[in-house]
Design a binder for these strands. Structure first.
Length: 217
DNA sequence: ATCCTGTGAA
DNA sequence: TTCACCGGAT
């Protein structure tokens, strides 16, 4: 069986059981981008608290976010952890938008995808996963987002090796799947759900996992 | 390889 | 009290 068939069978199994995820949980492209930075190495509920604090202070627009002092910004995003680093990263991202004369983040949609990806990666605090999350979920670019969850699930199914790097893992999907924004959006969301609910780091619940039927022995 | 940090579950 | 959390920089 070829890789495309395998990956689409996995997608179907997840989709049948879990259904539409309607990601990313955010009301605007800008909020989604901010969320992508705040959620780095943190659970979503903590990131959500930081986003709620920003919203309560009209901080979910470019203009609103800019007006906070560094200290105020740190205070508001504190629940997301790494608050000093993340405050600086948010400001780096705002500077990036200004440098590229974007009044609004959606102005970037016209930029060619991989040119934009390279530019995002130049921002201190935006790595491959954050860049790709912004591209896919805020700007509707057909880029497959991979993460530690993706590596864990597909390594446990012995489809990739444990030390596979970000780029290689991304190509594992993008080389064979059609570059469809809706497919990429939903597939990553389903992977995250699966890792949180069943394919947990410790004591995974393989019996109830939607992917159980693909496991050997 | 190590640091950055808060929060909730186990 | 430990562990895990939709990483990234040094």
């Amino acid at each position: 069986m070829n890789r495309e068939t395998i990956l689409m069978d996995y997608f179907a199994a997840l989709s049948d059981r879990i259904g539409p995820c309607n990601w990313w949980p955010g009301d605007s492209p800008f909020e989604i981008a901010i969320g992508a930075i705040l959620v780095q190495n943190t659970n979503w509920s903590n990131a959500q608290k930081a986003i709620n604090n920003l919203r309560d202070h009209d901080g979910l627009t470019m203009q609103g976010l800019r007006k906070f002092s560094e200290e105020k910004l740190q205070e508001l995003i504190r629940p997301s952890g790494f608050f000093r680093m993340k405050a600086a990263r948010l400001n780096n991202f705002l500077d990036f938008l200004s440098r590229n004369s974007a009044e609004c983040i959606t102005d970037l949609e016209t930029v060619e995808t991989y040119e934009l990806r390279e530019k995002l990666l130049e921002v201190k605090g935006i790595g491959p996963e954050t860049a790709d999350s912004i591209l896919l979920y805020a700007l509707n670019k057909p880029v497959f987002v991979v993460d530690a969850y993706t590596r864990r699930i597909f390594n446990r199914h012995m489809l990739v090796h444990e030390e596979i790097d970000y780029h290689e893992l991304q190509e594992f999907f993008m080389d064979v799947l059609s570059h469809d924004v809706n497919l990429f959006n939903e597939y990553h969301a389903l992977i995250v759900m699966t890792a949180k609910n069943w394919c947990k780091k410790t004591s995974p619940d393989c019996e109830k996992c939607p992917l159980n039927k693909f496991m050997e022995n």
